[in-house]
Amino acid sequence: MTVPLVELRSVSKYFGKVIALNGVSFDVQPGEVHCLLGDNGAGKSTLIKVLSGVHTPDAGEFLVNGEAASFGSPKETLDRGIATVYQDLALVPLMSVARNFFLGREPTKRVGPLRQFDIDMANRTAFRELRDMGIELRDAEQPVGTLSGGERQCLAIARAIYFGARVLILDEPTSALGVHQASVVLKLIVQSKARGIGVVFISHNVHHAYVVGDRFTILKRGKSSGTYAKNEISRDQLLGLMAGGKELIDLEQEIAKLGNGQPASGPH
């Protein structure tokens, strides 16, 4: 294995009495999709925030390209090529695709004594970059509000890649999407991987993760339940590990009981 782009070694994070992360190790290689799976409250969000520089770990090591690193702010992390696409996507619906693509990093050109926003370049570049990633736009000037959920997700990812992301941290990129929309995003993830980008794919949807993932790490109650390569584990095993096999069996039995006997009381 080559040197990981980003590596966490036995990282812990505490919030007062709460142990949000307890000795978790995690790494991502270039050209790899590493899925981080876990139920709500498993510590996924905390782990993302450690990776993206929002939180500094209380114990353990944070390595970037094999060297110890510590980041004071998300901006510093971003400057090292570690980009996080959060669920809110940081897109402004009333603004055009191109204006969103270059939001905060607008290209300028000199016109006489003035520096002005090069809107033509922005339109052309946004359109071309998105097309190259398989997202066919009708018009770079259309408002982001007119895009579908999947297209918006792709726009946010494409933007991060265009501005030099080498590690992409995607926070539940498919969770709010329908089957077709999700598949568009999953394709983009595979493409990013083909470009040599290391992708951290956070999800609680095993089906989506298993399609694109190379390795899987399961988080449970702040601890890692292990990291598995795709050939070491089946989808069902993964599902069992993640949800807690016992809980699922219990649930099945309970539902079976409900179906057999007593009619459900009330609409809920």
Binding site: A90, V92, P93, G104, E106
Partner: peptide, 25 residues
């Protein structure tokens, strides 16, 4: 509004201030 970075920031600040801030505006 239409041809400067500042104009883009004006639209973004009013459209979604949190998103704008996250993008470094």
């Amino acid at each position: 509004l239409s041809r400067t970075r500042f104009g883009n920031w004006i639209f973004a600040a009013g459209g979604d201030a949190a998103a704008a801030r996250n993008m470094g505006v």
